[in-house]
Amino acid sequence: MNTATVELTGVSKTYQGSRSAAVAALCDFSLRVESGSFVVLQGPSGCGKTTLLLMVGGLLSPDQGMVRVRGQDLAALSAEGRAAFRARTIGFVFQQFHLIPYLTALDNVLAPALAVGGAGLRQRAEESITRLGLSDRRDHLPGELSSGERQRVALARALLHQPALILADEPTGNLDEESAMAVLGHLRAYAREGGAVLMATHRTDVSADVLVRLRSGATVTDHE
């Protein structure tokens, strides 16, 4: 059996509320994401989608179970080790874009170079910006861009190191329909080119290679 890009086995996460009762966000959850596949986590708000993505990204540790990304058990790495691993292997796209407000579109796309440098990054960033239709926006600050443009900059940033995996948390949540379709199209294209995409959304109209429906506790997985 070949290595999946993401392999979750029996993962549970319970938040210890500081002033309230504990919240079980995920319970005994398992999932495989193969390379070249576009996997959508679908479910209502509060069902644990973000929690799941943060754990796959190594930003959150599960209480139980194992998270492997490209065969690497994330729990076996130190915090700095996880950061380095994340820098090379995983790209993030968020609902709120999380662009750095004082950097131009181009510099935002180049921000991952702060963690891992490399030759030809600038050229790749510029190509990526052009491919996403932002060439006339590359020297603009995020504040001067529309939501759709901002999310495309964020997407270009996620793609800079050509990661094996893209984690997208509600990437279309703040976008108009047209921009949403454009972003979804780019993500799907990335998966088609061999990268794995794991996207969380509460939208019900998204077509995916694998659709995982999360409900409080229970999980239904559809393969198309």
Binding site: G57, L59, A79, E80, A83, A84, F85, R86, A87, R88, F92, F94, Q96, H98, L99, I100, P101, A111, P112, L114, A115, V116, R157
Partner: peptide
């Protein structure tokens, strides 16, 4: 804070 969060997500270490 948001910027720090995203930099960490991008793999920038605590020392940096």
């Amino acid at each position: 804070r948001g910027e720090i969060g995203i930099l960490r997500a991008l793999g920038v270490g605590q020392g940096a």
